[in-house]
């Protein structure tokens, strides 16, 4: 069962945490480490609403290690007014935090079988906590595969960390990019190809997929055509969010509220909505 944590007294009030560290990942992407001052427990796949004083509030998935709740880690891409403001915060600045919210990746349900993690671009950020969990409790899972797709080798998120994972013997990591210079010795092509060729056992596989919606669409199609049950393919959806607590109506996706019925969904649950345009 996927659990929710920390139902708080007044859910519209942020708590303020100090920025401890700030690291630039890519030209437009930064990771902030926050000090909650207490263990900030969360499950992989959950998100917080991050508030910059007087600017605004946006949902950002938690990218840290769930086994290390003393540090709260968020990777943010500067795409709008508030996310740009978050990325500009220096160590010592205060960030408003509400959360954690949402349904998590099915780490318990996935136990006992193979796990395929397919990440596209910034989609690796919501998946990183799941990867930490898989590695920390490695014995509970069968073969573990990580497929990362990105724009180009220079634009791969967490590339140093992905390389470290790749050097482990117990996780199979494949990276592919959409474009590269001809000196690139890695894969050049779409992430769906990595899924098509990998040696996981479809009848005993749980897949965790996150990235641009179109990438998820194709990755899911590939997984299902390889025989992974739609109930065992999970995606992380994104919609406009204002309250994150199921009251403002913005994040509706058909009958579901992304904030409380998601953002993680089994594909079987949202298969119909996935195919409807402009939903």
């Amino acid at each position: 069962m996927q659990a929710r944590l920390n139902v708080r007294a007044d859910p519209t009030l942020p708590e303020f945490f100090r920025v401890r560290k700030r690291r630039r990942e890519l030209a437009d992407t930064w990771t902030l480490e926050l000090e909650p001052g207490r263990p900030f427990g969360f499950l992989p796949g959950q998100f917080n609403m991050l508030y910059v004083f007087g600017v605004g509030e946006v949902p950002i998935s938690i990218s840290g290690d769930p086994a290390n709740p003393e540090v709260l880690v968020h990777t943010v891409r500067a795409v709008g007014k508030t996310s740009q403001a978050i990325c500009a915060l220096r160590p010592g600045a205060m960030v408003g935090v509400r959360g954690p919210y949402g349904i998590s990746w099915p780490m318990n349900e996935a136990a006992g079988g193979d796990v395929v993690v397919a990440a596209g671009g910034i989609g690796l950020a919501p998946l990183r906590s799941a990867i930490y969990h898989l590695m920390a409790q490695r014995e509970r899972y069968g073969r573990v595969f990580l497929f990362c797709g990105g724009r180009s080798p220079e634009l791969l998120l967490y590339s140093a960390e992905v390389r470290r994972w790749r050097s482990r013997f117990d996780i199979e990591v494949e990276v592919t990019v959409d474009s590269a210079a001809s000196q690139w010795r890695g894969n050049l092509g779409v992430v769906t190809k990595l899924i098509a060729r990998a040696g996981f056992e479809p009848s005993a596989t749980t897949a965790l997929v996150c990235g641009p919606e179109i990438m998820m669409r194709f990755a899911v199609t590939e997984l299902v055509s390889r025989g992974v049950a739609p109930e065992r393919v999970y995606v992380s959806m994104e919609r406009n969010m204002k309250c994150a607590i199921g009251l403002c109506g913005h994040c509706q996706y058909g009958p579901q509220f992304i904030c409380k019925d998601g953002p993680v969904f089994s594909y079987a649950k949202i298969e119909r909505q996935f195919k409807v345009r402009e939903l």
């Binding site: 519209t12 508030y51 004083f53 007087g54 600017v55 605004g56 509030e57 204002k242 309250c243 009251l247 403002c248 109506g249 913005h250």
Partner: peptide, 11 residues
Amino acid sequence: CFCSSAEDAPD
């Protein structure tokens, strides 16, 4: 109808 928006208004 209950949809609402959160607005931040600084001085």
